[in-house]
């Protein structure tokens, strides 16, 4: 998993440009640091040849003012050009996706067929090579949307909609995380971005926009019944069932995601069971109450049902 969230392992256009900027600045900065160290050493060394020009105001004027002004002018200009290059792309072909920061998870809203949008959570799937304009909003406090290997971060601010452009250069999974402290479980508010090639993306999108898979056996049918009768639908939606809550993440295809609880834990039936019963220990202060009402058999049924919602 090393590098999955790294600025230095770029897999997107912006991240690559910024990584180049960083390595160049690091090189320049190292040279300057070495120069300062050498000058200091010479200054400390006592009488040595070449110490004469070190001891006058001329040193300060040339090395302390003129040189930095030249270097900084160049750096400023470069930074400004990079800033211009990274501005939001007005690409007519761009995919528009909305991500809403919630305490402490991500609501993802895709455009569906016929202008009807549908929701997912904590995972963003995007096509490789195509501009994705992500609309960033928040439902409560300030969050910040950040996928280091694709691009820099942009905050989600109440009353505003910020837009950022992502272009993934290669297929694969990147990890993102909330970068603005949002109280409570801020540390456990992550997500995955999965870059797919165009055809894979379209077929995924078609499947994802559809309703949930109906339960296939007795146990998962029990799981679905438990889900509906225990009030889970007050907060969660499973399209194709009566559960249409809007407070928590949409679970229509929860089993197909890479992680649970905003990339806090792996995603399988056992993990879902633990989450339902013990979520306040796994992710303290999260807004889902722990459900200790289920016995082991019921919990297994519910977990298998949810894990099966691919």
């Amino acid at each position: 998993m090393n590098g999955v969230q790294s600025v230095l392992a770029p897999r997107g256009q912006d991240a690559e440009r910024i990584a180049t900027l960083f390595w160049t600045m690091l090189g320049g900065g190292t040279l300057i640091m070495l120069a300062v160290a050498v000058l200091t050493a010479l200054a400390l060394k006592g009488d040595s040849p070449g110490r004469g020009w070190l001891r006058s105001e001329r040193l300060v004027v040339w090395v302390g003012i003129v040189l930095p002004v030249c270097l900084l002018t160049a750096l400023l200009a470069w930074g400004l050009f990079a800033l211009r290059a990274g501005a939001v792309h007005s690409d007519p072909d761009a995919l528009r996706v909305a991500v809403v920061g919630e305490r402490w998870w991500w609501r993802v809203i895709y455009p569906g067929a016929g202008g009807r949008s549908f929701e997912s959570a904590n995972e963003l799937r995007i096509p490789v090579g195509r501009t994705v304009n992500v609309e960033l909003r928040t439902a409560d406090v300030i969050h910040s949307f950040w996928v280091p290997s694709l691009a820099g971060k942009v905050d989600m601010i109440p009353g505003r909609t910020n837009v950022m452009s992502l272009v993934a250069n290669a297929t694969g999974v990147s990890r993102g995380q909330c970068a603005e402290y949002c109280g409570g479980a801020h540390a456990l508010m992550s997500f995955h971005v999965v870059a797919l090639n165009a055809t894979e993306f379209e077929s995924w999108l078609a499947h994802e926009s559809g309703p949930a898979i109906p339960p296939a056996d007795a146990e998962t049918r029990l799981g679905q019944t438990l889900f509906i009768t225990s009030g889970c639908g007050a907060c969660h939606t499973i399209r194709g069932t009566d559960a249409a809550g809007r407070i928590g993440p949409d679970l229509t295809h929860v089993g197909g995601r890479l992680s649970l609880a905003a990339a806090t834990m792996s995603n399988d039936a056992a993990a879902i069971g633990r989450w339902i019963r013990d979520n306040q220990h796994i992710k303290p202060q999260n807004r889902m109450p722990p459900f200790a009402i289920f016995d082991d058999r019921q919990l297994a049924a519910l977990s298998r049902y949810l894990a099966g919602l691919k």
């Binding site: 002018t73 400023l76 990274g86």
Partner: peptide
């Protein structure tokens, strides 16, 4: 330095 920014960076647009 402040003045040259307007020559490079587009006005009123988001970064």
């Amino acid at each position: 330095w402040l003045g040259i920014t307007v020559l490079i960076v587009p006005v009123c647009t988001s970064p």
